[in-house]
Amino acid sequence: MAELRCHAVVLRVRSLGEADKMVTLLTREVGIVTAVARGSRKTKSKFSALVEPLTLGRFLLHQGRTLYTFIQGERIKSYAKLNSDLERLAYAQYFCELCERTLLEVRPADAMFMLLLTALEALEQDKDPARVARCFEISLLDELGIRPALEGCRSCGSTSGSYRFDPTEGILLCATCPHPVESYPVSAPTVATTKRLLEFGFHKLSVCVIPKAVGQEIHRISMDMLTHSLGVTNLKSLDFLLKTGFI
């Protein structure tokens, strides 16, 4: 009988049958795992509070042929208090959905795990949730090894003037160099802020002011990179954020 002891964040919970839940976890030990919590929809179940979204815990799972099953667990912290603010909750779940969709291999995921925890901590504290989201997006690109190259025009080396971003290559091109149809203009503050986020991440994020227009450009760059490099599209939480006007 194979067992998995793991530290994990509950990313997503779905109802399964009458009384069970299907839980998607980001584990530090093996990345994304889907596990069944038997009986957890019943109010007296010992699992019901443990397998709520945005819970950080230690879990013991049994590895079956196709699925994992919860044996026991212990809650370390819940980020569920974010649910008093719809924007923060939506961003928290957006981070979760991004982890779920971009982490595709079964392997230790220390860095991604820490990134998600750092972002959730920041969401609880930062007065600007959108800023936390932009930092998470850019840090995620870095973590996935698809960091955009922002040191001047890739074609001629020019480091001044206005740039276009080419999401197919993840590079900048200057206005005078030939550029593909997919490319679009990005402002100097966007390039500068993205470089700052790549260099410092969440460190001293509170002094980094990101105007909404810059934030929207950074978001576009990140999503385009994820779409082109990893085929990530149709994120439900992102639809939610766009529909509610948070992005």
Binding site: P53, A90, K236, L241, T244
Partner: peptide
């Protein structure tokens, strides 16, 4: 219920 990750607003 509201659930951003399921796109329910």
């Amino acid at each position: 219920a509201i659930s951003p990750i399921d796109g329910i607003g």
